[in-house]
């Protein structure tokens, strides 16, 4: 349960986060030593409740923290073996790491197709390659093709999530950080989006780090998982094991021993610091 994933040991991780600490506004300590690693071709889930630090972790990796006045004050992040703390968000995208932000954040006044094209901003490989990738995105998300001319502000939530993922794909990334893709979507749509994530992972060799509150779905599609609580990793392991873990079952999957449980008897998390450095 405490060992790193076998895949991560076998090869150097594509992305590794080593004991980072994040402080907002110079005073608010949000992450207190988070370490994780994403192997090439992996799908890793980052689980945790509201405010556990999932989004902060992702933004620390994609270097989007500065706009929220957050700072990585300790620890290192390595992407493709290169220390990436000091790079800009645009540099990360150029190197192949894109974040799909929580709440989708499509450009509401741009059409779906224009949204997708903004994703290719950092690319210098010419119009032909970009329009080929546009067709690729439409292949995975046929619905977007139907709505290519609509303003992104007016399409449905599920379509917006597809548009946001498609936009990220247009950068030809190695890694997509997917923040809360299930937010506000019907279960059927959540299933559809996760199955596309799995296909993208297999067919396009994109690695995913997904932050999710919906642990059931996330663990079903991920191969490894980390559980965050109050800015710390409290538990990690292969997705299958995590899904069987009694604590995870009780706190995230909504299973209990059966029958009514007295509040006094509910377990509190056995907090455990985990320092990888």
């Amino acid at each position: 349960m405490t060992t790193a994933s076998p895949a991560a040991e076998a090869q150097p991780a594509l992305l590794s986060v080593n004991n980072i600490e994040v402080i907002y506004d110079h005073v608010i300590l949000v992450l207190k030593g988070v370490s994780l690693s994403l192997p090439e071709g992996g799908v890793v889930a980052l689980l945790g409740a509201n405010g556990a630090g999932k989004t902060t972790t992702l933004k620390a990796i994609s270097n989007l923290l500065k706009t929220d006045r957050g700072d990585v004050t300790k620890g290192q992040i390595h992407f493709k073996g290169e220390q990436s703390n000091a790079l800009s968000a645009a540099d990360m995208v150029k190197r192949g790491l894109v974040q799909v932000m929580e709440g989708r954040h499509c450009f509401g006044h741009l059409t779906v197709e224009e949204n997708l094209l903004t994703g290719a901003y950092t690319r210098g490989d010419g119009r032909g390659a970009i329009s080929a990738d546009l067709e690729l995105v439409y292949k995975y998300f046929p619905r977007l093709k139907e709505r290519r001319g609509s303003l992104a502000g007016y399409i449905s939530g599920g379509e917006q999530q597809m548009c946001a993922i498609g936009r990220a794909l247009m950068a030809r990334p190695k890694v997509i950080l997917l923040d809360e893709p299930s937010m506000g979507l019907a279960p059927q749509l959540v299933a559809e989006i996760f199955s596309i994530v799995t296909r993208l992972n297999r067919e396009e060799k994109v690695s995913f780090l997904l932050a999710e509150q919906n642990a059931t779905v996330a663990l079903k599609h991920a191969d490894y998982g980390y559980v965050l609580e109050s800015g710390r990793v409290v538990l990690d392991g292969p997705a299958g094991q995590l899904a069987e873990n009694a604590d995870v079952k009780e706190f995230y999957l909504g299973f209990s021993g059966g029958g009514r449980v007295n509040f006094r008897d509910t377990k509190h998390y056995r907090r455990r610091k985990r320092w990888l450095a």
Partner: peptide, 15 residues
């Protein structure tokens, strides 16, 4: 136009 719509999202796609 993307920046004017949502500048954090624009940053997230590398603009």
């Amino acid at each position: 136009r993307a920046v004017s719509d949502d500048n954090q999202a624009a940053m997230s796609v590398g603009i």
